[in-house]
Amino acid sequence: MSIDFAIEGNGVATITINRVEKLNALDDAHYRALSDAWIQVRDDHRIRCAVVTGAGQKSFCAGADLRTEVAKKPVQSDPWLAQGHPVLNRGLEIWKPVIAAVNGYCIGGGCTLLLATDLRVAAEHAQFGLAEVKHGLIAGYGGTQRIMRQLPHAIAMEMLLTGDRITADQALRWGLVNKVVPQSELLPTAYEYADRISRNAPLAVQATKELALRSRDLELADGLRMEQLFSQLLQSTEDVREGQSAFVERRPPRFRGR
């Protein structure tokens, strides 16, 4: 039982939610360990991209462990500890791309985690759902917010209000995931995405992600202005010069994130 963390030589980090006997549901200890993993992804300059998945073949993440987490008496000061043990779906800002490899149930908090990732690959047997209303709860950690921005209104409301699950094929049809593949191809497909991303200039990748996400809440003129400033900032980096040299010399670039 753990949150497994590994970094490959190409700068790709893998976070594996490893609580197979509980369908990778998260109790307090696992939430804290997952928070530590996300902070390392954010702060470790070796990491250029991250893949998050679940151990086994039955579940990506079944969300909060209802037997332990929901039964806890709420602490009235908790809502004001907005940055306590931050996780990706609760608003931790990570501008390195995050890819989800969904290997089964993606329910509740698992689905809200999915909604906070950038690219998503699902196994054919994956199922997705925000079942909180079936338990007297709401889809927190961004569930009620992100899904309305990522799916058509009627589809998002159906998932939120019925709590029913959708299949991998439905998720693909509505644009919730990028690809649906056989289980045996799940991680290779996710890592292929990660490898393609990690070959690119890391500062430019992070700037692109931040601009794309922040601009959703900006007027077009403000977004264009921010884009202009980011572009000017990147022009002074070593990676821009390396990219130009590699193009002229017809060789793969060796980006260093500087």
Rank of each mutant, 00 (worst) to 15 (best):
M157Y: 01
A168T: 14
H153C: 11
A194K: 08
E192R: 07
L213Q: 12
E192H: 07
I166Q: 03
T189H: 01
R225I: 11
A171K: 07
L224K: 15
L187Y: 02
G142M: 09
D169T: 09
P202I: 08
L186V: 06
L224T: 11
W174K: 00
L161A: 13
S215I: 01
A168P: 13
D217W: 00
Y193S: 07
D217V: 00
R165N: 04
L220G: 00
G223K: 09
Q170F: 04
S215C: 03
G142P: 04
M159F: 02
L172H: 10
L176T: 01
M148V: 12
T189W: 00
K209A: 10
G143M: 06
N200D: 13
E219H: 10
Q183W: 03
Q206L: 09
D222M: 05
R196C: 10
Y141I: 11
M148H: 09
Y191N: 10
V177L: 09
Q206S: 15
L187H: 00
M157E: 05
L218A: 00
L224R: 13
S198G: 08
E210W: 08
L220A: 05
R216H: 14
K209D: 09
G175Y: 01
E158P: 02
D164M: 08
M226I: 14
I197Q: 00
L186Y: 02
S215G: 02
G143I: 07
A221S: 13
A156M: 01
L160Q: 09
L151W: 06
R225V: 10
A201S: 12
Y141F: 15
L172I: 07
S198V: 11
G163D: 02
N178Y: 03
L172T: 04
G163E: 03
L211P: 14
I155F: 13
H153Q: 14
R173S: 15
I166V: 07
Q170H: 02
K209C: 13
A201Y: 04
T167G: 06
D195I: 00
Y193F: 15
I155C: 01
A194V: 11
S198C: 14
H153G: 06
L211G: 12
R216P: 06
R165E: 05
M226Y: 12
M159L: 14
P152T: 05
I155K: 06
V205N: 06
E185F: 05
W174P: 00
D195C: 02
R173W: 12
Q145W: 05
A204F: 05
A171S: 08
V181M: 03
P182S: 12
S215T: 06
M159N: 02
I155M: 07
N178V: 06
T162I: 08
Q150H: 11
A212Q: 07
D169F: 04
